[in-house]
Amino acid sequence: MSSTVDGRTAFARRALADNGALAGLLLLVVALSVLAPSFLSTQNLLNVGVQAAVVAVLAFGSTYVIVSGGIDLSVGSVAALSAMVGAWSSAEAGLPGPVALLLGLLTGVVAGLVNGTLVAYGKLPAFIATLAMLSVARGLTLVVSQGSPLTTPDVVSFLGSNLTPFLPVPLLVMLLFFGITGFVLSRTYSGRAMYAIGGNEEAARLSGIDTKRQKLVVYALSGLFAAVAGMLLAGRLSSAGPQAAVGYELDAIAAVVIGGASLSGGVGRATGTLVGALVLAVLRNGLNQLQVSPFWQQVVIGAVIALAVLLDTLRRRTR
């Protein structure tokens, strides 16, 4: 009996030592529940989950990219474009909702494939290729929408609703994509190849890994996840906005990095990214509860990102 308990505490200790962000998240939750009594209410915690969902799904997509040594700056714009294509297909073109949803998701995949082609075959630096896509996708969103928001089909609005009062759909979608990401990274050939490519592309190539094709997979996944995130965001408002998700790519990258991934590639996990996204959401929610002005919130969040990565770096160095 006692050995199982020991085993469990040892596991918990290792999990905390292994993931500084998780310790930070717990600390944050404890501090906020003391400072703001309403923080720990079920309704508020569900809110945090819903608020985290969009960034988390974007960040899962970015985890593939960052683990394989790249960067995707276009995910915010691609999210907006995908949602807009979905909304336009149903509202303007009159297609059935599910078809519209699929067209939206397909838009994300295509944008990702373009990114991947530019990076893998055009040999553009990922920063440049996806910076270009950031602008192109945002521009196309404005073109499609003519600058004004469009109503989403019911199937998309469902994604932003609650199944029961205590079961928000965005939370379920987030957990589903968390599971998918963990599975892809640890169990699939493509996932393991991402670590090899990000750690040492030349060694991966010399070991027979088709690095170009795998990069296409990576950016296509990132585009698909961005499209899903875009649908979640639009679903919550029942409307796709031309200026939706501006700057979300930075939140996604921040979540991945807070989760312990390395921007130089080869390191990163789905659990880390989930924790990173939750840290950002808890922080925003908590600061709201404490009635901190939005201006100062930005300052605090920036400081937390720097602090999280700094602590992680120090922890690695002392090993």
Binding site: Y195, G199, N200, A203, L206, V267
Partner: peptide, 18 residues
């Protein structure tokens, strides 16, 4: 050219047969 230094011994050994 030979190793993925960010990975483990096991992952490196399995790279070619992955």
């Amino acid at each position: 050219q030979g190793l993925v230094l960010t990975s483990t011994v096991g992952d490196n050994l399995g790279l070619v047969t992955l």
